[in-house]
């Protein structure tokens, strides 16, 4: 790290607070460590940084605004309440998404008679764009949205997973390569293929919507 050599900082803690003073954007892990030391500003920052993604993900899972908001609020509240005993986390966003998933599924199981469907789902990619097994009513959705979801659910499993990692977990190619234990180039290739497919679907979607209007 450049800062290290620049200021000859001894340990990472010092570096964290130095970065804070210089108002350099802290990484998630740095924020996480500050939260463990009672830094409420860091807590708010982390909240702001990840809220939108969590909201989007929660909505994809349960389609209920209220339930999604409540669960997100609860997750962050829990983090703050137990900040002194938090475990170290490698990738904060993945951790948050996983926690939200667990929580939502728990809530849905409590309230739903459709246990079978929920149990069939696994954390992450499947749920995001699978249309057939949507958990909660879809009456509010427009015809167009349905068409789009339908087409997106025609992506392969690994393509969906790719989308999840790129657009939800916000991982870099390098991180994805590490996570999936494959080499960098094959991640790039898959990403390229996925995006190409996605693009085709969007164009198709735009076309259908065009046709529907006339």
């Amino acid at each position: 790290m450049e800062l290290n050599s620049l200021f000859s900082v001894q340990n990472s803690e010092e570096l964290d607070s130095l970065k804070k003073d210089l108002s350099i954007e802290l990484t998630d892990v740095e924020l996480w460590n500050l939260i463990r030391k009672d830094d409420s500003e860091a807590m708010i920052k982390l909240y702001k940084r990840h809220y939108h993604i969590l909201y989007s993900y929660g909505m994809k899972i349960c389609r209920s605004k209220e339930l999604t908001k409540d669960c997100i609020q609860e997750i962050f509240t829990n983090i703050w309440a137990s900040r002194r005993t938090l475990n170290k986390v490698k990738i904060v966003r993945s951790y948050l998404l996983q926690t939200l998933w667990n929580k939502l599924v728990g809530e849905l199981k409590k309230n739903s008679k459709r246990n079978d469907i929920i149990q069939k789902q696994v954390y992450q990619s499947d749920i995001i764009f699978s249309h057939e097994d949507k958990l909660i009513d879809e009456e509010n959705e427009s015809e167009l949205m349905k068409r789009l979801s339908n087409s997106i659910s025609s992506l392969s499993k690994s393509q969906k997973e790719m989308i999840f990692m790129l657009f939800y977990e916000g991982l870099s190619y390098k991180q994805i390569a590490e996570k999936k234990s494959v080499n960098y180039q094959s991640v790039k290739n898959l990403s390229h293929k996925t995006i190409k497919k996605l693009r085709e679907l969007i164009i198709m979607y735009a076309l259908t919507s065009f046709l529907l209007f006339f």
Binding site: H52, I53, Y55, S56, L148, I152, I195
Partner: peptide, 9 residues
Amino acid sequence: IIDQLYIKI
């Protein structure tokens, strides 16, 4: 494309 991938609050 990205617009389609997220549900915004």
